[in-house]
Design a binder for these strands. Structure first.
Lengths: 222, 222
DNA sequence: TAGATTGTTAATCGATTAACAATC
DNA sequence: TAGATTGTTAATCGATTAACAATC
């Protein structure tokens, strides 16, 4: 178990390992080797072992890894079995779509309240979550443990709201606004969902496949 | 203009450059240097110049880059000014939230139709987009130019639907299902929005900040 | 014990940063 | 022309892959 600084790339691969392991466990697979797991995800066996060994020696020589055990370990590392208290800030379409469809609990997060300014949305339950008026947020956060803010407000309100939330002491922001947020406190965790970036990248790759933009025409063969 | 293979990292930074440039232009900035642009985004000046030079010499020595020009160039590279025809597959909450809130046009994409199996959703317009029954999709795709499928179906239907879409000849899939899709044709572009991965990563970083998981206890001082 | 596969170190590769000559 | 900043090459750094000794 080497414990230097763990690279961002390694961290980003952890959820993929977890997903693969959950599927393996679902179909009853008991053990798996680093090379099998690698093949499943498109990584080399070396990389799998190196990644996992950042967090501990989960394997057994000559055997491989126990699926259930490794899955449990990775869930623990990712905090997937926690129930971190979170609030939804902005209960518009995106916010409510998350409440409808997204399994927060499976990621170790528990949404305890939502906030909005739209009187058509406030003062009601939505998917079991009470939607408060935004003006109640400050009091709510002071009276309840809130670790995470799920930020689903329009782009032009995002930075302002982020500053406000950081001031209130939330420890992490899951941001859905298409905006590069500037987080004043360095120990507040920011994680973005960037729809635009993703779709633009798709557009680029599409153009690149057509050979248009940057795929240089093959050199003329003579 | 060096034109080796352009790295994924470079491509992933393009939308960030674009976002910064749009903001600069919005506030009337005319020119910018690589080091200013870098400071804005947290990159080094070298990196900015190297990234941009993958696509062309957009700058002028002694001056820097013209904001409007560079913005236009990057939009072109990303295909943001196109209107690539796309269909929405699955018009549930997530799908409709996208139609409500997301600016497809600004990413060079035009959603021409949506498909679902839910009779409460089909045969109606939603945000100007007609929702067809899924059984009409095959005919629709054959009769209309469709480049991109925005995949918003439940996780357990995603792989099946992806195979079907690839068979119908779509050239790219923007996937919102939490599933590692296996795309049979190598030239079909796949781009994922991974909500779970993102929130799990947030959870990890939160735990890491608390010094719990992987921050090794400081060695005992004697 | 022999075979297999890990944990871990060494070699390679690629990406980022630094430096500088070209040039506006 | 002098000053500034690019485009581009060289140096550095980090991440991935390969190799192998440890060990189940």
């Amino acid at each position: 178990m080497r414990n230097g600084r763990i690279s961002d790339n390694t961290i980003r691969r952890l959820p993929a390992y977890l997903r693969a392991l959950e599927e393996l466990q679902a179909v009853g697979t008991e053990r798996i080797t680093s090379s099998q797991l690698g093949r499943l995800l498109g990584y080399t066996a070396s990389q799998v072992r190196l990644d996992l060994n950042c967090f501990g020696g989960f394997g057994t020589q000559g055997y491989g890894y126990n699926v259930a055990e490794l899955r449990a370990s990775i869930r623990r590392i990712l905090g997937a079995d926690e129930a971190r208290p979170a609030i939804l800030v902005g209960a518009g379409r995106i916010g409510r779509a998350l409440l409808d469809n997204f399994d927060f609990a499976d990621c170790g997060v528990h949404v305890t309240a939502a906030f909005d300014t739209d009187l058509n949305l406030t003062d009601m339950y939505y998917q079991g979550v009470w939607i408060y008026d935004l003006s109640d947020m400050e009091r709510y956060v002071k009276e309840h443990p809130v670790e995470i803010a799920v930020l689903c407000v329009p782009e032009d309100a995002a930075q302002r709201m982020a500053n406000y939330l950081v001031g209130l002491g939330v420890r992490a922001i899951w941001n859905f606004a298409n905006d590069d947020l500037d987080i004043p406190k360095p120990d507040v965790v920011l994680e973005d969902i960037k729809f635009s970036d993703s779709l633009l990248e798709l557009g680029y790759r599409l153009a690149a496949k057509s050979g248009a933009v940057s795929a240089p025409r093959p050199a003329p063969v003579r």
